[in-house]
Structure formats: structure tokens, C-alpha cells
Write a protein that binds this DNA or RNA. Structure first.
Length: 424
DNA sequence: TCTGGGGTCCTAGGACCC
DNA sequence: TCTGGGGTCCTAGGACCC
């Protein structure tokens, strides 16, 4: 049995999703904006070739985009999530084990019995993704996750490799490692790459061969693991079964700064309602809630405040969450502050499968069961008829601070009313 | 005017215990 | 001058990821 670890991802995933479901965008420069139409988070190769880089604030380059005829889209996570799900199903058919790492990325264990050559397998998978989903993917293969990541990077950057790179079988691994800049290594961020460069470590090869004691002193076991993985000694296991979340957060920037407590109340309540549904989908209860808000970090004076409360009994009942959070909102609010963002964080999460009811009396148990039925019904109605069909009175009016999504594409694959109609 | 959102892991340090 | 030793648990903060 010949084994390898693959890192498979969608190229420029969000932009590719937009292009896949709107043929008129094919081969056109497209960019996708973050929530609130804040900054660029994805761009098609055509947009990249026009000099548009990631992370740029939209308001700063709006005119440039218009001038260059670049098509702009607000992020449409229901569309991307659905296409991601289909991609992962395809990977499951082609791989022995799959770890979903992010919306557009997965690690996979590949075991082939008959051949050392993984390229035919990878080419087939690429073709299928393109044919079934219209999404270009890149495949990197290595003996460890870090090697697979590096191989994936090479698959994208070496033009004659057609999106596939097998690091295990390549001749002269050292030569390829030397071509990888320190910043492009998975696990080396801004701080660590600066630290490395100050010591003359500028490539993946140098990182692999530097004294491990030095690395350990700086970044502990994380650094040692990274170095071992670079050598091809796999020490990061594939996480096939997703582990339960330790915390869940819902937050949004406002489309304009807010200063009134009623607005903050409505915003935080909206996020809590969303968080409650998330918890129920995850079969989890929250033991504690934190609410937070802050002003723009780009403006002085900066104001930021948070407040936390423990729940008497862990819960995922939206009414309980709203009641518990209400006094916290008063605590974090200050008048005359231009608040640009607010959110909620649910922590001390635990499974809802074994809700401890033995300490409660009959009346309390009955109340609990009633509220669970109510939540289930609300979730079902909202899933079937659209988000917000049933909600709490505090969200009844459309808020003027709701996030901007001015260039939103349709929910092509997830809402019946928005399925494209093709005339022949 | 305008700058995203949601996570994980690890470590250091404090509180507390015997 | 001089003040034990060893452990657990929790939290905050740093660093990283997409």
C-alpha cells in the first residue's frame, strides 16, 4: 500500500463559485467582498492579473475597480457553503479519509495499492470537480500535512504542473524547499517570519535545517512539530471526525456607526438569536455568554468593552440567552461612542445530548421540554421558509445598521425561488 | 463616510490545594 | 542573609489559520 496526504482546495474559491453559477462572469475579472462590503477577500485570476490584491478596503479602490471593468460581488455564504458541501462529497468518493479543514480546503489520506504514481488519480479528481461543479481545484501531495500544503502551493505556482504536485516523488526536494519563502509556510505568520528573517532564515529549507533548540525556545512544541513535518515525519493527525466546538461567536460590523442603546440592544439580540440556532444545530448548550462592542480601531479614542455572565443551567434556548444577556448590554454601553461592531460569544459549551434534568422538579422539566419543542418548531419554520420567518419582537423592524451587501448574487442553489431559469 | 468574521492551539501566570 | 515543593485548574493573551 502506497500512502500520501493530500491537500485539496478550490482556487480563488468564492470568485470561482460566482463564476460557476453565472456564465457571463467566466473569464471576466471578478472580486468578492467581505461582509459589509468591507474589503477584497477573493479575486479571479483575471482580477489578480490586473493588480488587485487581497485584503484591500473596498472604499479605497472602488474607482479603480470601476475603471478596469472588474465585476464586484458581496459575499454570498449560502452559495459558497452549498458548493463547498458538494465538493466535500466528491472528495469523499475519491479519498480514503477526508478532514474538512475550511470552506474551500480539505486534507485527505490517499492509499493506492497498485501504483506509486498519484498523478492519474489526481487528474481524474480535478476533471470531476471541474465537470460537476465548475470549480478549479489544486492538489498537493506529501508525507505530512505541512508537506502537502507546500506541494499545494507549488501546484498553484508552477505553471506547467496543471494544479497537481506530488512532493513525495519529486526529485530534489531540497531545491523546491529552497524556493519557498518563509512567509509562505503554513504555521509561520507575520511575527514568526519577522523573527526568522532577523536570524537569516528566509526559506523552508533553512527552517527545516535550523537548530531545533532555537525553534523550541521561541515557539515551543508548535515549532518542533512544524520542523518535523517539513522533514516528512507526520505528527499532525488527520481529524476525520470534527471535534465539538469549544466556543461559538456571532458578530457583525454595522453599515454605519450606532450611538443608541436601543440599537445596540437590537443588534446583540439579533446575534444572540442566530447564536441560539447555531448551538441547537451543533447539539450544544452554552454555559456562559459574553457580549462585546467597540468603536473603530482606526479612529481615536478607541473604546472597547465586553461583559460575561455564567448561566445557572447551560442552555441553547434563545429566550434564556436573551434574558441572561440583557443586563450585560447595559454594562458595555456608553453614550456618545460611535460603535461600529457588536457581537456575542457563547462559551463553556457542552453537548445537549445529556441534559441534566435530575436536579430539576417536574414542573421545571416540563417547562424545559416545552421550550425545546418551541425552539425546534421555530428552527424548522425558518429552515423551510427562510431566515427570520419567525423571530423575536426585538427584531421585528428592519434595522438601519444592517450590513451592506449591495452586490449580492442569488441563492442559486439553496432557495427554490432563485433557481436560475434556462430557456432553450 | 467607508477597513470581515469565526475559529484553534499553546503558554504563562495566578489561585488554590495538600 | 534566610520564607517548601509540587500539583491542578482556569483565564488571558498571543500567534496562527482560512
Amino acid at each position: 500500500m502506497i500512502q500520501g496526504i493530500a491537500l485539496i482546495d478550490g482556487n480563488n474559491f468564492y470568485a470561482a463559485c460566482e463564476q460557476s453559477f453565472n456564465p457571463s462572469l467566466a473569464n471576466h475579472p471578478v472580486v468578492v467582498l467581505s461582509n459589509n462590503d468591507g474589503c477584497i477577500i477573493a479575486r479571479s485570476p483575471e482580477a489578480r492579473d490586473l493588480g488587485i490584491s487581497m485584503g484591500q478596503p473596498y472604499f479605497k479602490i472602488r474607482h479603480k475597480l470601476e475603471r478596469l471593468g472588474i465585476i464586484v460581488r458581496s459575499s454570498n455564504y449560502s452559495l459558497y457553503g452549498d458548493i463547498s458541501h458538494r465538493l466535500m462529497l466528491l472528495l469523499n468518493e475519491h479519498c480514503n479519509e477526508v478532514e474538512i479543514y475550511s470552506i474551500d480546503e480539505a486534507f485527505a489520506q490517499i492509499n493506492l495499492s497498485s501504483t506509486k504514481d498519484f498523478y492519474p488519480w489526481a487528474r481524474r479528481l480535478r476533471e470531476q470537480a471541474h465537470q460537476n461543479l465548475g470549480i478549479p481545484i489544486s492538489i498537493g501531495i506529501g508525507a505530512s500535512k505541512v508537506q502537502a500544503k507546500i506541494a499545494n502551493h507549488l501546484a498553484k505556482t508552477i505553471s506547467n504542473h496543471a494544479g497537481i504536485f506530488d512532493f513525495r516523488t519529486t526529485k530534489d526536494q531540497d531545491w523546491w524547499l529552497e524556493s519557498i519563502e518563509i512567509e509562505n509556510i503554513w504555521g509561520i505568520g507575520k511575527k514568526l517570519s519577522k523573527w526568522c528573517r532577523e536570524r537569516g532564515i528566509t526559506t523552508a529549507l533553512q527552517l527545516r535545517d535550523m537548530p531545533s533548540s532555537e525553534l523550541h525556545a521561541k515557539c515551543g512544541v508548535v515549532g518542533i512539530r512544524l520542523q518535523e513535518e517539513l522533514k516528512g515525519n507526520s505528527c499532525m493527525k488527520l481529524k476525520v471526525k470534527p471535534s465539538p466546538k469549544k466556543e461559538t461567536c456571532v458578530s457583525r460590523s454595522f453599515s454605519r456607526p450606532i450611538t443608541k442603546i436601543e440599537e445596540l440592544r437590537q443588534a446583540i439580540s439579533t446575534h444572540l438569536i442566530c447564536a441560539g440556532q447555531k448551538l441547537r444545530n451543533q447539539n450544544q448548550l452554552a454555559g456562559a455568554i459574553t457580549v462585546f462592542t467597540h468603536t473603530s480601531p482606526f479612529r481615536q479614542p478607541f473604546y472597547s468593552q465586553k461583559a460575561t455572565t455564567q448561566l445557572e443551567t447551560p442552555s441553547n434556548d434563545t429566550t434564556v440567552l436573551l434574558t441572561a444577556a440583557r443586563p450585560l448590554i447595559e454594562k458595555i454601553f456608553r453614550p456618545y461612542r460611535l460603535l461600529i461592531k457588536a457581537g456575542v460569544k457563547m462559551h463553556s459549551l457542552q453537548t445537549s445530548k445529556y441534559l441534566q434534568t435530575n436536579l430539576l422538579n417536574n414542573e421545571a422539566i416540563e417547562h424545559l421540554q416545552r421550550s425545546q419543542r418551541l425552539m425546534k418548531t421555530i428552527d424548522r419554520l425558518n429552515t423551510r421558509f427562510g431566515k427570520g420567518t419567525i423571530t423575536w419582537a426585538i427584531c421585528r423592524s428592519k434595522a438601519s445598521w444592517e450590513m451592506r451587501r449591495e452586490q449580492l448574487s442569488c441563492a442559486t442553489t439553496t432557495r427554490l425561488e432563485e433557481i436560475p431559469i434556462v430557456y432553450s
